[in-house]
Design a binder for these strands. Structure first.
Lengths: 354, 354
DNA sequence: TCCCCTGACTAATGCGCATTAGTCCGCGGC
DNA sequence: GCCGCGGACTAATGCGCATTAGTCAGGGGA
């Protein structure tokens, strides 16, 4: 039942003015010394030393809010992820991205601030709605499909430096970085072709997401390029449509390679695995399977799927690079597509001869 | 290779002054209308409506940095967790706390900002070191044992509202909330007493942490209270010291109940389980076991240990309550101890008659 | 000797907002 | 007919800092 009391006559934190008084100089000089004197004004080393000493003695630390207001910068980068709560859970799929973000940000001298869309907060009039908080930082990374488009648009239109992680097309003038799903998918098809496959089927959920259409595009492109034949199956309910029987019929039609798309649920991949098992077949002996992405954690005990990995840390780092380019140069023209790495895995093999 | 360019002639975000011009009022009036007019200055409804309309039309959103500077508040609460990069292993145990923090914060009209100790950033002179970033927020929660004590002390001494999650004694005048390990441990002992046990042994690692000494205190207190006899065994290397043979010797001495402390590794509990198995015994038939905390995830397949659960979400919520009390009243006297809940589990039972 | 220049600083200003002291107008009271 | 008063606002100020214009003393050069 201890009582903690804030000092009422707020001794408060020291400001530059106090440091200045102690060092016997002006507030301007303190600012000059402490903020690196970018305009190259001549300063005597002794003065500099006195100021630094005084600052240390008083435990001075700049107020980031004031810095942001005065200089329009405070070297903070925001990360906004629109999830229920902070994505600090290791199991969270955003986590590896954040690791890359942090490394790159630190390397470039920025600190990070995380925001989340705290969903339920009633938007009072005149109150910053969720997205506007990010203005505390010099620029912000946005993560996830559910970032409200209209608020984001306003932010961007008002000139706020923002970079979206994951391809985002609705808003031009919104910078983004994304994984190159099309090329990665094409590579998987080429590998299958190299293994002797002539017919490939891609199984997807019915999904309008760019990540999905990108894969389909890469798939079709690679078919054309390699001369394979193939087909895209979009199933509203993969578990119901992708059955053992379906697999058999495909085999009868000469298909020996199946590719599934990775999604949140991985429903297509799961359905495919189940169907193959139901059909009494095994990969890669009887047929080849590939997953366009990484398998979900709960399937970690199964043989590693052939497919590709999204370099999530690299994605985060690329986003930071783009954002800092925006901040320092006012523009960014680095390629927003990050290549994925092919994963040989153990579910695809040479096409069995008929 | 798209080129994203920030508007150079920065059309920028609208400020209150622009809204004021459009609405034909003064900036003061805009501020009054939009920030809720807490000083109760009379305003004509029409004026109010015009201002709101203008604000909406321009897409006005307040600058949180300016708000913080002018009003010394922006209704943001910080959460600082000190880990090298985004928490990897600890993250898991913090996560439920964050959930509680977020719920309570939202309920009280605060938004959250998350900071992490990005350790490695070279501390430039005059640059805010990691902890000082939290000043962007009105107050901050600190999470974890590794928050640097000296920086935290400075923050607190300068009157910054801070609450530590987890007991923290070195700094008086630092508010904290923590789980009531002592009482929870005492309850476990009482339950064992009620089951007919007369002798209880507590197995710990050698640990100076408060969480550990609190448990020991609760244990000894409950022994005295119930009239049981007991002993505390602190093992530097539990796996080596807590053996099947050791268990047998304890049994020979009349002990039928063993209690282990929960730690990061849960070494004591693991050692105990192994030792009991080595001795060819089973709980709760031959003896009773209790764990002072929650079992680690990798032991989830075993029978649920008797013991107690730390209400992590509640802990987070309590921390937010304490912090907001600090913010609004300038002081907090709510009890910082959050009670734990007894978990019957399936490893403790009636003491076998000799 | 006078002037200009350079080095080492400081005064003043403004960022966008909240707040504190007014200001001004209309109306009821005496 | 003048005063006072409350309603509806606005002017001015300052938060803590960065930045832009100075200021001032001393040292050549002509």
């Amino acid at each position: 039942m201890a009582e903690i009391r804030l000092p009422k006559a707020r001794r408060g934190r020291p400001r530059q003015a106090e440091v200045a008084r102690l060092a016997g100089v002006s507030q301007t000089t303190v600012s000059l010394v402490l903020s690196g004197n970018k305009q190259g004004i001549a300063l005597h080393p002794d003065t500099r030393a006195r100021v630094l000493q005084a600052a240390r003695q008083l435990g001075y630390a700049p107020d980031p809010a004031a810095q942001r207001l005065a200089a329009a910068r405070n070297d903070l980068l925001g990360v906004f992820s629109f999830t229920a709560t902070f994505p600090t859970d290791v199991a969270h799929s955003y986590y590896p991205i954040l690791v890359g973000v942090e490394q790159e940000a630190v390397a470039r001298g920025y600190d990070l601030v995380l925001f989340t869309g705290s969903s339920s907060a009633p938007a009072r009039a005149g109150r910053a709605d969720a997205l506007d908080r990010v203005r505390l930082a010099d620029g912000c990374l946005f993560l996830g499909r559910h970032v409200p488009a209209d608020e984001l648009r306003r932010l961007v239109e008002q000139g706020y430096p923002a970079v979206h992680i994951g391809r985002r097309d609705e808003l031009d003038s919104l910078a983004w970085v994304g994984a190159d799903y099309a090329e990665a998918t094409a590579e998987v098809v080429r590998r299958l072709a190299a293994l002797g496959h002539r017919h490939v089927v891609l199984v997807c959920e019915t999904d309008e997401a760019l990540a999905s259409t990108d894969r389909e595009r890469g798939f079709r492109g690679a078919l054309a390029q390699t001369g394979l034949t193939g087909e895209v199956v979009r199933a509203a309910d993969p578990a119901a449509e992708i059955t053992g029987e379906w697999v058999r019929s495909q085999l009868a039609a000469g298909v020996r390679a199946f590719v599934a798309e990775e999604t949140d649920t991985c429903a297509a991949w799961r359905a495919l695995l189940t169907a193959v098992e139901d059909a009494g077949l095994t990969a890669p002996a009887d047929l080849s399977l590939a997953l366009l992405g990484a398998p979900p954690a709960d399937l970690a005990h199964l043989p590693e799927p052939t497919g590709f990995d999204v370099p999530k840390a690299e994605l985060g780092a690329a986003a930071v690079r783009t954002l800092t380019a925006l901040l320092t140069a006012g523009a960014a023209d680095c390629s927003p597509l990050v290549p994925c790495e092919f994963r040989p895995g153990r579910t695809a093999g040479p096409a069995p001869h008929p």
